[in-house]
């Protein structure tokens, strides 16, 4: 276990926020170019953030206020009760519980299973490993919609329709994309650690659990956040498997709310804001890791 003492020195070189500093990038622009760039950025930023602010403003208006409000960001009436009314018009807490269950469990499951499989691909030398990894990668190109009909029949045979299980169960088997990310991450850790542990008589499971997993913090945070955001907003699977109110999740409820209460804009915006809020909060907590994670996933 002497290897784990080295842990702090094994920095993850890959998952780190890109900064304007550092070796890369074009050299310093002349002043005119910089002013032009900043002007464009400011104008663009206003355009990009405006719908978001307008969403917040609309959420605080009365229905009459919406027809007068137009493009203005200032809600003439501060109607905070929209939030309580919006949430009161459907069993919000039950949906929130369902959303949390169908997000948190997959996050934990997918992190552990992908890390385990990714570790095997990175460190255990075995016959067939290369071929199998190619198969894992090729499934990345396969959209889940292609297999949705048989999957539905499978879960119907397992008696799991209208429960959260069809959303949760597959995550226990790892995700091809995350397996790939963990493999890449582990390949960059020094292999001497594994050799030392093997000589000391540790088994592969122990090496994974006590050495590699504790060193995986950056990649765990990045994958957990990515998984959280995609499952929190999961709509396709929810629309297929969840048929009654008991297990409905927030996105499904919001879609139903749009078709029923489609004319009450403020309530709709208030609800949409509440649905979005956890992702925004998570972003501000783990901003560095998210930006780092996204750059890592894209630039290989």
């Amino acid at each position: 276990m002497s290897a784990s003492a080295k842990a702090p020195t094994v920095k993850a070189p890959t998952v780190k926020a890109p900064t304007a500093k550092g070796a890369g990038g074009p050299r310093r622009e002349p002043l005119g170019g910089r002013i032009l760039a900043v002007t464009l950025l400011v104008v663009g930023s206003i355009g990009f953030v405006y719908p978001f602010l307008w969403m917040i403003a609309t959420a605080l208006r009365t229905p009459e206020g919406v027809s007068h409000g137009g493009v203005s960001l200032w809600p003439i009436q501060w109607r905070w009760s929209n939030f309580t009314d919006g949430l009161g018009s459907f069993p919000f807490w039950a949906y929130l519980r369902n959303s949390l269950l169908s997000t948190i469990v997959p996050v934990v499951a997918v992190v552990f299973s992908s890390s385990l499989v990714g570790f095997a691909f990175a460190r255990i030398r075995a016959r067939g490993s290369g071929v199998l990894f190619a198969i894992v990668l090729s499934t990345l190109l396969l959209p889940q919609e292609v297999t949705i009909v048989p999957q539905f029949i499978l879960f119907k045979n397992l008696d799991m329709i209208d429960t959260l299980w069809p959303i949760i169960v597959p995550t226990f088997f790892g995700s091809a994309f995350f397996i790939f990310l963990y493999r890449q991450f582990y390949l960059r850790l020094p292999e001497a650690m594994t050799d030392a542990a093997l000589i000391d008589g540790a088994g592969w499971f122990r090496i994974w659990f006590s050495i590699y997993l504790p060193l995986s913090r950056p990649i765990i945070i990045a994958t957990a956040v990515l998984q959280f955001m995609s499952y929190w907003n999961n709509f396709f699977q929810a629309a297929i498997y969840l048929t009654t109110d008991r297990w409905k999740t927030l996105p499904l409820a919001l879609a139903g709310f749009q078709s029923v209460n489609g004319t009450n804009t403020p309530l709709l915006m208030a609800t949409a804001l509440v649905v979005t809020f956890p992702c925004v909060l998570l972003f501000f907590i783990a901003q560095r890791h998210i930006i780092g994670g996204i750059s890592f996933t894209g630039s290989k």
Binding site: F48, V49, P51, F52, M55, M229, N233, N234, F235, P251, L252, L254, A255, Q258, L268, M269, A272, V275, T276, C279, V280, F283
Partner: peptide, 13 residues
């Protein structure tokens, strides 16, 4: 920031 408003919430907005 807008990338955080996805799926149903984005459609509704």
């Amino acid at each position: 920031l807008p990338s955080l408003v996805t799926g149903v919430a984005q459609a509704v907005l």
